[in-house]
Design a protein around this nucleic acid. Structure first.
Length: 924
RNA sequence: ACCCAAGUGGCGGAAUUAGGUAUACGCGCUGGACUCAAAAUCCAGUGAUAUAAUCAUUAUCAUGCGGGUUCAAAUCCCGCCUUGGGUACCA
């Protein structure tokens, strides 16, 4: 038996042991369940870095803690393997995403296993495997065949709606829909198939419609804002345009209200809730309708949202989005038309996203103010964030920052119509005719009453229906074919609709075998399309959020080939008790998956309204990156602090370099640099004060910045237990923090001290005697602290408390079994390998996870008969003083005034503050 | 631009749940023990300034900046600054 702490041997042994003995399976049983999950990882080619590990280690600590608390823990992992990077990589290298993904998953799996995370590997899933995406496709089909009934606040099958249309038309229907008109059953029956489907598209929860996207013609694809810089694609540098395209959408707006309400039942930080609330962006407002004459005297109605009717006299202009249906034909004179089309042209070109300058164009047209009957000018502008439905806005520059800036630039009037009245101590209306002198509330009521015919109360939401189509290859095929332009779903028995094999990943989009044979029920060659029995299949794929919106359900029942989840298993695991992941997912993923879950609940396939009970955001790990200044086209490097001085002579480029070339802080080790970068032949360095400085920046870890830290190397050098504890000891999980290895020695020392507590002169030895009261007190203080701190996920302070206890035991030379056994159990979630090893050495025959954690015994912590008061003078702490518990306030006052440190001063006491059981503050 | 978060010694951080000893724990540094020496280990000290010329003591100032509330503010309120994240096709 080894006597030294040999982490290499120990960790390998226990990792094999756990796998061999199936210690972490998480099968359904009669114990209380606990479902803990990390957000879905995307297996990138760079492998795992320490940032990922932070989340896995924290979830693992909690999972292991819950197990020794007697829970049946589900702690699964899988891979979100569809998505852009693999496709991008394929385009660059020609390597098929399928192969890349497999390799990366394997790499991740090995890396995770090396840090001893207790995942249920038997439940691993991957979104790009057909057994999985079969059900993603199935769910899309269900969404397509559903509509939202507002009367029941629930999604329902579309055939019920069609039935209703046949009986009563849409007169009695209260649905979330983009269809405005009413029709009777007779009208409905007269519609042809195409017309009927066009109407149904306005009700379906998955529907086709036009939307504006960033189109890059050269790449033949739509780009994310992130993929664009200065109006050009980052990949290749090709121009990008705004384009209206027919896209699949998901009617997520139907669930806006429930997504808001559901937040009450999720335990998470207030900031996360705020982010979600802002994302949904609910506001009460009124629709106001203005008549406008288009060219050839055609009269149309413009709908705008009025948020504050009390400020109605402050309206001085109206804004339309360049994408408003009237924008192209609102101008009547030739000159205005010319100006408008010029503006529209420049704004279909994408510029930088957030450096929007104040821009706009006068249309030459007006609407009429409902009270003053004065003309209000209409402008077209993309300076404002506009409502997605109406694509318009009312400008009240007297009371809005952006409107004010706009008004100033275009020489429009800005009227303040609300003023604070000191006399009445409230805001009142001014310059508002019959509203003058009224409070805002009164004024609002009055306006609404007078205009009741044309002011319709509405709720406006910032959240809008999600675009679901992706003009990409590497995603789930959308199981739709087009029968004479009418979208039809592939029969569910013939799912999955397999992603076709493809060998070229350039922008060439045509698929050779991508048609649906309705009779033979199979995919056939595209050239066979005859629009009789063989029809084209939808060529877009699903977004990566589709697969990640329900994966947590599949973990409960991975092997099921009959349905996506077995009812009994769903009844047992229900939903996720704890969901851990980065705050960068606070909007997208959390909104989409909550929506998806609510839909499944409405249709009766799951029983819970919310998928996540508690959400914990982990912070990011940052790392220093270093860049140096190089003169473009020459092997001349300039010290960073000379950047501005030399600016006039040279054009610079900034290069990321490896941190191994840095000698201290931001100074470059020139010899190291020459050694690492021989490609810069005979480089010349321009120094400042004999040193060459780099630019040092704390950034997100990324291989392209050469600042990635690989956990494997740390595990090899220090061991997984040290790495795990160190990662936690860096600071609170929720905070972003820089990575540095400098302090890992502290944890290494701690684990060695812990090991030595169980050993004397290298021989394992524990004392069987009964512990003293003092020793028990130390133990139970720790138990109390750990219970509390683990619940708060304050794992860094848990480790501090372990250190304190171990130091105390070393001081007392205590190696008693009755103290060490509970100690090692408490530490086991944090450092499982060393704990298992010592547990075995203590003579235990089974893994430490099968032994319940000792409970707190308060009697060891009870204090004596005195209460300690903090004595302060003028609000500053001076000393501690004990008083008998029985003493009255008066007696305490008397005692403290007679205290030698108080009595001897010559100053007069002005005031004495006594807070019972806490402090005494003496004021001179 | 908007939304969310963070800012405490030389460094990572603790104390923030509910205002009540600011700097726990660890790193680093300094001194000592052991050693021929070094490493490792162990022991002690460690916010700043002043007083003291050793120990102690005491006082003042310190939680990004400027105000406010309070007997008492790192913690609550108002206004700024800096850094990180999100803003709908990166995941």
């Amino acid at each position: 038996m080894d006597t030294e702490y040999n982490f290499r041997k120990i960790e390998k042994y226990w990792q094999i042991y756990w796998e061999k003995h199936h210690v972490f399976l998480g099968e359904e049983n009669n114990k209380k369940k606990y479902y803990i999950l990390n957000m879905f990882p995307y297996p990138s080619g760079y492998g795992l870095h320490v940032g990922h590990c932070l989340g896995y280690i924290s979830s693992d600590i909690y999972a292991r803690y819950k197990r020794i608390k007697g829970y049946n823990v589900l702690h699964p992992i899988g891979f979100d393997s569809f998505g852009l990077p693999a496709e991008q990589y394929a385009i660059q290298t020609g390597k098929h995403p399928l192969d890349t993904i497999k390799e990366n998953e394997k790499k991740y799996t090995n890396q995770i296993k090396k840090i001893g995370i207790s995942f249920n590997w038997n439940r691993k899933i991957s979104t790009s495997s057909p057994q999985y995406y079969r059900w993603t496709q199935w769910m899309f089909i269900q969404i397509f065949h559903s509509w939202y009934d507002k009367n029941y606040e629930s999604a329902k099958p579309i055939h019920l709606l069609i039935q209703e249309f046949n009986q009563h038309g849409n007169v009695l229907v209260n649905a979330i829909t983009s269809y405005q008109e009413k029709f009777s059953s007779t009208t409905w029956k007269k519609f042809n198939v195409q017309e009927k489907e066009n109407i149904l598209q306005n009700y379906r929860l998955a529907y086709l419609c036009q939307n504006i996207v960033n189109w890059c013609p050269y790449l033949g694809t739509v780009l994310a804002n992130e993929e664009i810089k200065n109006g050009r694609s980052i990949r290749g540098g090709y121009p990008v345009y705004k384009k209206n395209m027919l896209q699949w959408h998901i009617r997520i707006s139907a669930y806006a209200e429930r997504l808001l309400k559901g937040l009450d039942n999720i335990k998470c930080s207030d900031s996360l809730k705020k982010i979600q609330i802002h994302w949904i962006g609910k506001k009460h407002c009124f629709s106001i309708f203005f008549k406008v004459r288009l060219h050839e005297s055609e009269e149309k109605i413009i709908e705008c949202l009025l948020f504050e009717p009390e400020k109605i006299f402050g309206i001085t202009f109206i804004i339309l989005s360049p994408y408003h249906p009237f924008s192209k034909r609102i101008s009547t004179s030739h000159k205005d038309k010319k100006n408008v089309s010029k503006y529209l042209l420049t704004h279909f070109l994408i510029k930088n996203n957030f450096s929007k300058s104040i821009s706009g164009v006068f249309t030459g047209n007006h609407v009429i103010h409902p009270f003053t009957k004065k003309k209000i000018p209409i402008y077209i502008s993309n300076f404002f964030p506009l409502d997605h439905r109406t694509k318009s806005m009312i400008g009240i520059p007297g009371h809005e920052k952006r409107s004010y800036q706009f008004a100033k630039k275009f020489g429009l009037k800005s009227v303040k119509v609300v003023k604070f009245c000191i006399k009445e101590n409230k805001n009142i209306c001014i310059r508002s005719h019959f509203l003058n002198g009224l409070s805002l509330n009164q004024a609002k009521k009055k306006v609404v009453k007078i205009l009741r015919e044309s002011l319709i109360p509405k709720k406006s939401y910032k959240i809008h229906d999600a675009i679901f189509s992706r003009q990409r290859y590497w995603g789930e095929p959308i199981p739709i074919y087009f029968e004479n332009n009418i979208p039809k779903t592939i029969p569910v028995d013939y799912l999955p609709l397999l992603l076709p094999k493809k060998n070229h990943f350039n922008h060439e989009k045509l698929l050779k075998k991508w048609a649906w044979d309705k009779k033979k029920k199979r995919v056939v060659e595209t050239h066979l399309i005859d629009h009789q029995t063989i029809f084209p299949i939808e060529t877009s794929t699903m977004p990566s959020w589709a697969g990640s919106s329900w994966y947590f359900l599949r973990y409960m029942d991975v092997e099921n080939n009959n349905f996506f989840i077995d009812k009994k298993k769903e009844m047992y695991w229900k939903n996720i008790d704890l969901y851990i992941g980065g705050s960068e997912h606070s909007t997208g993923h959390l909104i989409y998956s909550r929506f998806w879950h609510k839909f499944l609940k409405d249709r009766g396939w799951v029983q819970t309204e919310e998928p996540f009970k508690k959400i914990l955001n982990q912070g990011m790990i940052l790392s220093y990156s270093f860049t140096i200044l190089k003169v473009i086209g020459k092997n001349i490097f300039v010290s960073y602090n000379l950047k501005n001085r030399k600016k006039t002579f040279f054009l610079f480029q900034e290069l990321y370099i490896s941190h191994t070339c840095i000698k201290e802080k931001d100074k470059l080790d020139i010899n190291q640099f020459k050694y690492h970068y021989p490609e810069f032949y005979n480089p010349i360095f321009i120094l400042k004060n004999g040193e060459f400085f780099c630019k040092r920046q704390l950034e997100k870890m990324s291989k392209s910045k050469y600042n990635v830290i690989n956990p494997e190397l740390i595990c090899e050098q220090y061991g997984a237990d040290t790495f795990r504890m160190y990662a936690m000891f860096l600071g609170p999980i929720v905070q972003s923090k820089p990575w540095s290895l400098q302090k890992i020695i502290g944890i290494k020392n701690f684990l060695r001290k812990l090991w030595n507590l169980f050993h004397k002169n290298g021989i394992f030895q524990v004392n069987e005697e009964n512990p003293t009261n003092e020793e028990f007190k130390i133990l139970h203080t720790l138990i109390k602290k750990i219970e509390k701190k683990i619940q708060l996920f304050s794992f860094n302070t848990c480790i501090s408390h372990f250190m304190i206890m171990v130091n105390q035991l070393i001081f007392l030379k205590c190696n008693k079994r009755k103290i060490l056994e509970p100690l090692i159990q408490l530490i086991s979630p944090f450092a499982p390998h060393i704990s298992e090893e010592l547990w075995m050495k203590l003579g235990k025959k089974k893994s430490i996870i099968y032994f319940p954690i000792p409970s707190l015994q308060e009697q060891y912590l009870l204090n004596d008969k005195q209460i300690t008061y903090k004595i302060m003078i003028n609000g500053k702490f001076k000393f501690l003083e004990k008083f008998d518990k029985k003493l009255s306030m008066k007696q305490i006052e008397k005692n403290i005034l007679n205290h030698k440190k108080i009595k001897n001063t010559e100053k007069r006491i002005k005031k004495l503050v006594i807070i019972p059981k806490k402090i005494i503050n003496i004021l001179y």
